[in-house]
Each structure stands twice: as C-alpha cells, then as structure tokens.
C-alpha cells in the first residue's frame, strides 16, 4: 500500500525535524533518497529551489512533490498529510496540557544542543548536494554570488532563483550550432 507507506515515511520525517525546512534536509536525504530511493539528490535540489519561490512551507512542498512523483496526486496528498500529522498531535497535546512549555529549562537546554547538531547535519547535507550542483565554472560563480548576496545583503531568494534560472538558460539553453 504505497499511500500508507508515503504517509508513514513523511510522518517519520515530520517528527524528526527541528526547525525550518532546511533542518529537514539531512532526514530527507536519509529517508527518501538513500533508504527508499524514491527520488534523487538532484530532484530534492529542484524541489527546494521551486519551494523557495512558491507559497507555503518548504517541508510541505517537498512532501507534495515526492508523493506525487511516486504515486500521483493522491500520493502527494498522502505524503503531505503525513508530514503535518505529528505536528498536529504534538502541538495539540502541548497547547492543551502544558503551560509555558517553551520556558521550561530542560526544553531550552535540549534545544540549544539540538541546534548545534542540526548545524552540523545541514553542513553535511549541503556538502553532498554541493558536489552534484556545482559542476563547472558557471555554477561555481552562481553559487558564490548567490551565497554572498544572501548572507551579506539579505537578497530576496525569489530574485536569486529567477536570476539563476535565467543564467542557466543563457549558458545551456542556446541551440547547438
């Protein structure tokens, strides 16, 4: 039952993610690229790039893309339902039962440790992707330019994605002579 499998896999990813869509990347690589082999590393990069310039939560976009790729529109919906399912359960329980959850000392301490770990895991994940995306001089220049623009100048990610797509078209899109 592929729909159930998609739901469960993405529920697993949802429960293991602390932070935004980026924190999910190492888990996604492990669960759906390496273990299930549902999509390739390059597919995930495409999903993230598209997720940057479409509405909504990136984690949800990636789930919808992967689910649809494996089992059509219904697959996309099942994967998405899976990725939000743990949030609904956990947040409802906390909202109903625990007052001031985020101010509990142990929660803050645990989170401080988790953040450091997520940094390193994202670094490893990025390194893997980097080798597949930065393949020549053009992509190296694009990579460095966009990194600098977004770290130091807070450039709009949508603008960066549009420029990169245009640059790709200019370099690779021309008809062969």
């Amino acid at each position: 039952m592929i729909y159930l499998e998609l739901f469960l896999s993405f529920a697993k990813i949802g429960v293991m993610t602390f932070g935004g869509g980026y924190a999910m990347l190492p888990i996604i690589q492990r669960e759906i690229v390496e273990k299930k082999k549902w999509v390739t590393e390059a597919d995930v990069m495409d999903y993230y790039a598209i997720g940057q310039c479409t509405p909504g939560v990136i984690a949800v976009n990636t789930a919808t893309f992967t689910g649809r790729h494996i089992a059509g529109d219904l697959g996309g919906i099942c994967a998405t339902a899976g990725v939000v399912f743990p949030s609904i359960i956990i947040i409802t329980l906390i909202a109903a039962l625990i007052r001031g959850f985020a101010h509990i000392r142990a929660v803050q301490d645990a989170l401080a440790g988790i953040r450091v770990c997520v940094c390193v895991l994202v670094f490893n994940a990025v390194l893997k992707m980097w080798k597949k995306a930065v393949v020549d001089k053009v992509t190296l220049v694009l990579y460095l330019a966009i990194l600098i623009a977004s770290v130091f100048f807070d450039a709009s990610p949508i603008l960066m994605v549009v420029i990169a797509a245009a640059a790709g078209l200019l370099v690779k899109g021309r008809a062969k002579a």
Binding site: A23, M45, V151, A165, G168
Partner: peptide
C-alpha cells in the same frame, strides 16, 4: 537549462540558511 542554474541557487540558499543557523546556535 533552467534547472542547471536553479540547483546552484538552491544549494547557495540552503548554505546561507545553514550559516544563519550557525550564528544562532553557536
């Protein structure tokens, strides 16, 4: 061709987000 450029952008944006988590976490 567009995807070839997009992937470089995608990794750059993820790297940038990674750098901002380093500033918060470390």
């Amino acid at each position: 061709a567009a995807m070839y450029g997009l992937r470089a952008a995608s990794v750059a944006l993820i790297s940038s987000a990674g750098i901002s988590i380093v500033f918060i976490a470390v």
